[in-house]
């Protein structure tokens, strides 16, 4: 199994397409950093438009590395599923397209093993992509913008809130958020993998994955009570942004933040469990479908 995984990772590492994702992440992050370095104050002004007459605060300090990373992740984690699909949706369909799938299946490795290894490789790719995001969006931003307390702008129901997390209480939240994002994006990897079994070139499963993510994301953001209750809880896209939960700091009765706390850990834990259940079901479905499939490519 380990040898197979090594082979799979070797193959991924040798493919030019793998690096498109890393280059895309770096490019998006760089554009954000450049824009905020040049004119971050405008963004701050926009976010604080409604209270700018009531409060004054240190705007220069507010645009720091931690804040930047949050802003970048906010945007990037919506696009990253496409990058994950680029690799994961190619897992089986790419082999079928190249003609190597029949050779793989004729080797003394079980189909279950092959799917699990493909899934593990896609997961490792996801982890590396998130590590790369952590390096570029978090650590590079910290180098460029420095550290500081972090502001989180949040809409909660029909209200908006500004949360302030002190700088010594942030790093663990990022570690947890990246870990959560890994789980969330692994759902995309598992979905792509399942779809890739049905196709003989990777374009179809990539487009199908992206379409599913887009449609489900739209449904997840429609505010209609009937959808809220009956549809949203079952859509994985409703939980993709759950990483933000680690930045929703807990408060006491007076609204004072409690260092090291989370506002709603049970909700995050539930989201995580739902995502893990999605992964499990999708991978199991992939195993079952793949085991039954006749390889005709």
């Amino acid at each position: 199994m380990w040898t197979l995984l090594q082979i799979e990772l070797f193959k991924i590492s040798k493919r030019p397409r793998t690096y498109i994702a890393f280059a895309a992440v770096a490019a998006i992050v760089f554009i954000f950093q450049f824009a905020f370095k040049a004119d971050g104050q405008s963004y701050m002004d926009l976010m604080l438009q409604s209270v700018k007459d009531t409060f004054t605060f240190d705007r220069v300090q507010a645009i720091n590395g931690y804040f930047m990373c949050y802003i970048i992740l906010n945007t990037l984690l919506i696009q990253v599923p496409i990058l994950i699909a680029l690799i994961a949706a190619d897992s089986i369909s790419g082999e079928a397209n190249m003609g190597t799938l029949r050779l793989l299946i004729s080797k003394p490795i079980s189909r279950t093993q092959l799917i699990l290894v493909k899934f593990a490789a896609a997961t490792i790719f996801t982890i590396f992509l998130l590590l790369w995001m952590a390096i570029t969006a978090l650590f590079m931003s910290l180098l460029i913008f420095g550290t500081g307390d972090m502001l989180v702008f949040r809409s909660k129901g029909d209200e908006s809130q500004i949360l302030l997390i002190t700088k010594d209480d942030i790093m663990w939240r990022y570690l947890a958020a990246f870990a959560y994002a890994t789980v969330a994006l692994t759902v995309i990897a598992a979905l792509s993998l399942l779809l890739s079994i049905f196709a003989e070139n990777s374009i179809g499963p990539i487009i199908a994955t992206v379409c599913i993510v887009i449609v489900c994301t739209i449904i997840s953001n429609i505010n209609v009570p009937i959808i809220d209750k009956n549809v949203k809880p079952f859509l994985f896209t409703s939980y993709l942004v759950g990483w933000k939960g680690f930045f929703y700091i807990g408060t006491d009765a007076d609204g004072k933040t409690i260092r090291g706390s989370l506002e709603n850990w049970p909700a995050i834990r539930k989201s995580l469990l739902i995502l893990i259940a999605h992964i499990f079901i999708l991978v199991m479905a992939a195993v079952v479908v793949f085991k039954k499939k006749d390889i005709l490519s």
């Binding site: 702008f153 129901g157 029909d158 209200e159 759950g242 933000k244 909700a267 989201s271």
Partner: peptide, 11 residues
């Protein structure tokens, strides 16, 4: 501006 995580808590 943001897609927020709806953790089910109500105001």
């Amino acid at each position: 501006v943001t897609f927020d995580f709806d953790d089910g808590t109500q105001n």
